[in-house]
């Protein structure tokens, strides 16, 4: 270890925030399109709406961070003077489109807050669905490109894995779901109407069950990522040893990413999801659990980016 990081905290934060925003946008749009979201007041409409409103914020904050991390922030528009096959170039275009469409998608939800604008809101349903159709592929694109960008270099053997992009995608979706759960829990107002309460828990179940599935996938992808790097003789095995037991970043990885970020939240969610899944019991997780679990997942998502980005830079090819 040692040496200065070429890509430091701003880039790590960007990778995390862009992942969260892209994940939130993708989840919100998918729920609107295929979650029975339907029109005003539909089952998951509120869930799609809170996601739509949140999604552009982390992406814009993260993008601001990396623009000012550039050596020449004023030249950021040089990225859009060309189109080439650099993952960063393609990612910049995806990011540009996603920021625009996610902001418009969020704006299309605003009239639904005002009952007197119900007519307008109903008319905007088609617009929302249109942007939702764009946001799903764009959100996935933004989440995937961050991993492709890191993976495109043989000089950084830890990153040079085809499964890193998949790992970042699943982590983006999982942290996106967690961000929506957190926001819903924070802004929740108990309703006297049992139907509204029922709807809240219905959406909460959809989110939590999805998160359990995503966390399961993420654990599997992490296992494959580490296993194949370790089974490869040479640069990748040498590089991955930094996060394996005995490595300099092993504690950080296994405690913060795997235990706090995946295993504990996944098990907690599973404990609430299973009774409903197996015995069709009523699903109602306490707000405190929702908050703790989602914060754990978000911390894990950040620490995943942190460990991968730092470990990839302090390790290099073996020999000279």
């Amino acid at each position: 270890m040692g040496g200065e990081l070429t890509w430091g905290l701003p880039v790590i934060l960007y990778l995390f925030l862009a992942g969260v925003g892209a994940g939130v946008g993708t989840v919100s749009a998918s729920v609107l399109l295929r979650g029975g979201g339907g029109g005003f007041g539909g089952d998951h409409f509120r869930l799609a709406r809170i996601g739509a409103l949140l999604s552009p914020l982390p992406v814009i904050v993260g993008t601001t961070l990396i623009v000012f991390e550039l050596g020449q922030p004023s030249r950021a528009f040089n990225l859009f003077k060309v189109i080439n096959l650099s993952p960063m170039n393609i990612g910049s275009w995806l990011l540009l489109v996603f920021i625009c469409t996610s902001v418009l998608y969020a704006l299309a939800f605003l009239p639904s807050f005002m009952p007197e604008m119900k007519h307008l809101s109903d008319r905007l349903e088609r617009v929302r669905r249109g942007f939702a159709w764009v946001n799903v592929p764009m959100g996935i694109g933004v989440a995937v490109y961050t991993g492709v960008m890191l993976g495109a270099m043989p000089s950084r053997p830890l990153w040079n894995s085809p499964i890193l992009a998949l790992l970042f995608l699943i982590s983006a979706l999982s942290t996106g779901v967690a961000a929506i759960i957190l926001l819903r829990a924070i802004f929740r107002r108990k309703s006297a109407d049992p139907a509204t309460e029922q709807g809240y828990h219905q959406s909460a179940y959809l989110l939590t069950a999805s998160d359990v599935m995503l966390i399961g996938f993420e654990l599997m992808v992490i296992f494959l990522f580490i296993m194949f790097a370790h089974l490869t003789i040479g640069n990748m095995k040498y590089a991955v040893s930094i996060i394996l037991p005995g490595g300099d970043m092993a504690m950080m990885f296994w405690v913060w990413v795997v235990l706090i970020g995946l295993l504990l939240p996944g098990l907690a969610e599973l404990a609430y999801v299973l009774p409903r899944l197996l015995y069709h019991r009523h699903y109602a997780a306490p707000v405190a659990v929702e908050v703790l679990v989602s914060i754990g997942v978000l911390i894990g998502g950040f620490m995943l980016r942190y460990v991968i980005v730092v470990a990839g830079q302090v390790t290099g090819p073996m020999g000279i």
Binding site: G71, R75, M153
Partner: peptide, 14 residues
């Protein structure tokens, strides 16, 4: 004049 200082090439150089 075109470089934006993103440091991607610095990462990519073995």
């Amino acid at each position: 004049g075109l470089c934006i200082g993103c440091k991607y090439c610095i990462q990519a150089c073995p």
